[in-house]
Amino acid sequence: MTSVPSSTVKPLISGRRGPAEMVVLKTFLLVPFVALVAAVPLLWGWGLSWVDAALFVVFYTFGTLGVTVGYHRYFTHGAFKAPRALRIALAVSGSMAVQGSVIFWVASHRRHHAFADREGDPHSPWLFGTSPAALLRGFWHAHMGWMFKREVTNADRFAPDLVGDRDLRLVNRFFALWIALSVALPAALGGLITWSWWGAVTAFFWAGLVRIALLHHVTWSVNSVCHLIGERPFASRDKAANFWPLAILSMGESWHNSHHADPTCARHGVLRGQVDVSARVIWLFERFGWATDVRWPRADRLAAKRKA
């Protein structure tokens, strides 16, 4: 796999979402967001138990690693090779983050790298200019506004390897099932552990809706915040930056300048003290024999990219 397919003949856009698709999309973007807003007063007075908190952490970690290790570093950039069982597990795990099906996500992100911060990038904050008003508009667009557009990135151009994979097409087709499981499993476990309907309700809220919303905004912040502010120790063709406050929640994705300087590298936090949980998970996969041909940082490549 390569991060940017060589074909430039096929169009960027393969079609437009219909009205029904837009309703479903807005529902799964906005309902968790409303839950996240409501979580602030709820957390102050009632409704959060240790069971909810534990389930939140477990499902947040599972979904986040599905996106960072699976969708991003493996499927999009080919940072390592994996056997069939792990490929399928990573695709399902990423799907349960409710950020889009595996083929949609990978195609969109490869397009982002092909046109980073230029015309054609689906979510650059710099597309409208550099004035304060333009950057405010760009921030909204990069953070979540781009997802409300009807256009769909052409997967045949940007992700032909995934389109041609029977297993991934099947996982992609059942995206609605993975969404349902993402919200139903925390509720079921909360109810069983507490042996109460109220335990199911609070787990559904905290480990289901609020967890999905937080993960959404952490990931979207890599698109918006990490292309606006932060440190840029490495040379890249765009404005990607390292933003350390998001390093833990994003599990290493906010070392974004390092990533754009060397997109196929399995580790994004390449400098001393840069915590990268996703890279550690890939390291464990390698130790267990589940990941091979891992593209770890090389001193010569880092030195060549390092700014004077």
Rank of each mutant, 00 (worst) to 15 (best):
P263H: 04
T264M: 08
H227A: 12
I229Q: 06
Q274G: 02
L192Q: 08
V225W: 07
V281K: 13
G252A: 11
M144Y: 10
A266T: 06
S254K: 06
T194I: 00
A187R: 12
F288N: 00
L228E: 11
I193D: 00
N242Q: 04
A176Q: 01
P233V: 03
T202N: 08
W255G: 01
M251L: 12
V201M: 12
F243C: 05
R237F: 07
A241M: 10
H227K: 10
L189T: 05
W290Y: 03
V281F: 10
I193H: 00
D167P: 08
L246Q: 02
A261K: 04
V201E: 07
R169Y: 13
T153W: 11
H227E: 10
G208S: 11
H268I: 04
G289N: 00
D262L: 15
D262I: 06
W220F: 15
L284Q: 09
F148S: 04
D238L: 12
E151G: 09
W178N: 03
W283M: 09
E151M: 07
D167Y: 11
F174Y: 14
N223Y: 07
F205Y: 15
F148L: 10
P233W: 06
A247Y: 08
M251D: 01
A240K: 14
W255V: 10
G208C: 07
A200T: 07
I282Q: 03
R166F: 02
V152M: 11
W220Y: 15
A155E: 13
H217A: 01
K239S: 05
A200D: 04
S250E: 01
H260K: 04
